[in-house]
C-alpha cells in the first residue's frame, strides 16, 4: 500500500526521490495513513490466514494447524449440493441486473440536481433521496414487505395495471424477486450514490459551459458534450468498482425478504453460506470455501474491469 503511495507520489511530482526521502518529506501524510494501514492489516490482511480453513475439516479445538487437511473436499461438497447452483445463478443475475439498472440512476439524478434552479426544491429532493440509505436494512425491508404484500401499496398499483393481486415476495416466477431486489437497491442507493457525481459536476469548468452556450448549445447538448465527458473518468472508476463488488449481493436484505418457498429464486451465495454454515452445527470449512469462492470471483472481476477501464478510458485503479 505504501509502495502504491510512493509510486503515486512519484507520478505527482516527487520523481526521483527515494522512499526514505519521500518518507521524510511527506512524514505527516504517512502518519495520517498509519491508522488506516493498521486497520487494514488487522481486519483485512491477517484474517486472510483463515482461508486455509476452506481446505480443512476445521475443528475448533484443533485449530487451523491441527485440523485435518481435506484439499478441495469442501468445494466438492459445495458444488455437489442441490442449493449452491441456484444460489450462484441468482447471485449472478441479481448482480448483473443491479449493475445494468442501478448504474445510471445516480448519474441522471446528479445531472438533474445540477440543472435544478430551485434551491429549496433541490435540497428537499436531495434529502428525500438520500434518506433510505441511512435507514436500517431491517426497516427498509419491512417497508418493502408492506409495499409488496397482498394489500400493499405497490401491489394495489400493479393490480390497477391488470396484474394479479398477490404477495409479490412469495412469487417464485423469474425474475419477480430479482426485480424487487434490484429496484429496492436502486431506491436505497441512488440518492447517496449521486453525491459523488454532484460534487464532480460542480467542479466542471463553468467557462466551458458558458462558451458552449455562446456557441448555441442547449442544456442537453451542454450536458452531453461538456458535463458527461468531464465526469467520464469518475463514471468509469465507479463502474469498475461496482463490477468488482457486484458479487457481494446484499446478504441482509435477501435474508430479510426471502422465505423457504422462494429459495429457488431468491437464495444468493451469502444467504446460502449463512444457512449452510449456521445450521445446528457450525461448518467453518464450507462457509470459508463459499466465502473464498466469492472473493476469488470478485477479485477476477475487479482485475478484468480494471484492465477494461485502462483500455477504454485510459484510467485505472492499479
Amino acid at each position: 500500500m505504501s509502495g502504491y503511495i510512493a509510486k503515486t507520489a512519484n507520478r505527482t511530482g516527487t520523481g526521483g526521490d527515494t522512499w526514505k526521502k519521500d518518507f521524510r518529506k511527506n512524514g505527516i501524510l504517512y502518519l495520517l495513513f498509519l491508522p488506516l494501514a493498521v486497520y487494514f492489516i488487522i481486519f483485512n490482511y491477517i484474517p486472510m490466514a483463515g482461508i486455509v480453513m476452506a481446505f480443512e475439516n476445521f475443528k475448533i479445538g484443533k485449530g487451523i494447524f491441527g485440523s485435518e487437511w481435506v484439499g478441495l473436499a469442501n468445494f466438492q461438497r459445495m458444488f455437489s449440493g442441490t442449493a449452491f447452483l441456484p444460489a450462484l445463478r441468482n447471485t449472478v443475475c441479481m448482480a448483473v441486473m443491479s449493475l445494468l439498472l442501478g448504474f445510471l440512476p445516480p448519474i441522471i439524478l446528479a445531472l438533474l440536481f445540477s440543472e435544478c434552479r430551485l434551491k429549496k426544491f433541490k435540497r428537499v429532493t436531495q434529502l428525500m433521496t438520500y434518506m433510505p440509505y441511512f435507514v436500517s436494512s431491517v426497516v427498509v425491508c419491512a417497508l418493502v414487505t408492506e409495499f409488496f404484500n397482498r394489500d400493499g401499496a405497490i401491489t394495489a398499483l400493479l393490480s390497477g395495471l391488470g396484474l394479479p393481486q398477490q404477495n409479490w415476495l412469495a412469487n417464485t416466477d423469474i425474475p419477480v424477486f430479482w426485480l424487487i431486489y434490484v429496484f429496492m437497491g436502486i431506491w436505497i442507493n441512488f440518492g447517496y450514490g449521486s453525491i459523488i457525481y454532484t460534487t464532480a459536476i460542480s467542479k466542471v469548468n463553468g467557462e466551458m459551459k458558458e462558451a458552449a452556450a455562446l456557441d448555441g448549445a442547449n442544456r442537453f447538448k451542454t450536458i452531453w458534450y461538456i458535463t458527461l465527458p468531464s465526469i467520464k473518468p469518475l463514471c468509469i472508476m465507479q463502474l469498475t468498482m461496482a463490477i468488482g463488488t457486484m458479487f457481494m449481493v446484499g446478504f441482509d436484505r435477501v435474508l430479510l425478504l426471502y422465505m423457504p418457498k422462494t429459495y429457488a429464486v431468491s437464495d444468493v451465495l451469502y444467504t446460502y453460506t449463512y444457512r449452510m454454515a449456521f445450521g445446528s452445527k457450525i461448518d467453518y470449512g464450507l462457509s470459508t470455501a463459499s466465502g473464498l469462492f466469492q472473493s476469488v470471483i470478485g477479485m477476477l472481476l475487479l482485475v478484468v474491469s480494471n484492465k477494461l477501464s485502462r483500455k477504454l478510458a485510459n484510467y485505472s485503479l492499479f
Binding site: 475439516n57 475443528k59 461438497r77 449440493g81 442441490t82 442449493a83 423457504p260 418457498k261 429459495y263 429457488a264 444457512r275 449452510m276 454454515a277 445450521g279 445446528s280 452445527k281 461448518d283 464450507l286
Partner: peptide, 24 residues
C-alpha cells in the same frame, strides 16, 4: 465428529429442500 458432520450436512441441504417441497 464424522456422524456430526453427516448431521450438519443434512441440516443444511435436506432441510432446505424439505422447506420448499412440503409446502408445494
Amino acid at each position: 465428529p464424522e456422524e456430526s458432520s453427516i448431521k450438519a450436512g443434512l441440516d443444511a441441504e435436506y432441510s432446505t429442500y424439505m422447506a420448499q417441497a412440503i409446502p408445494e
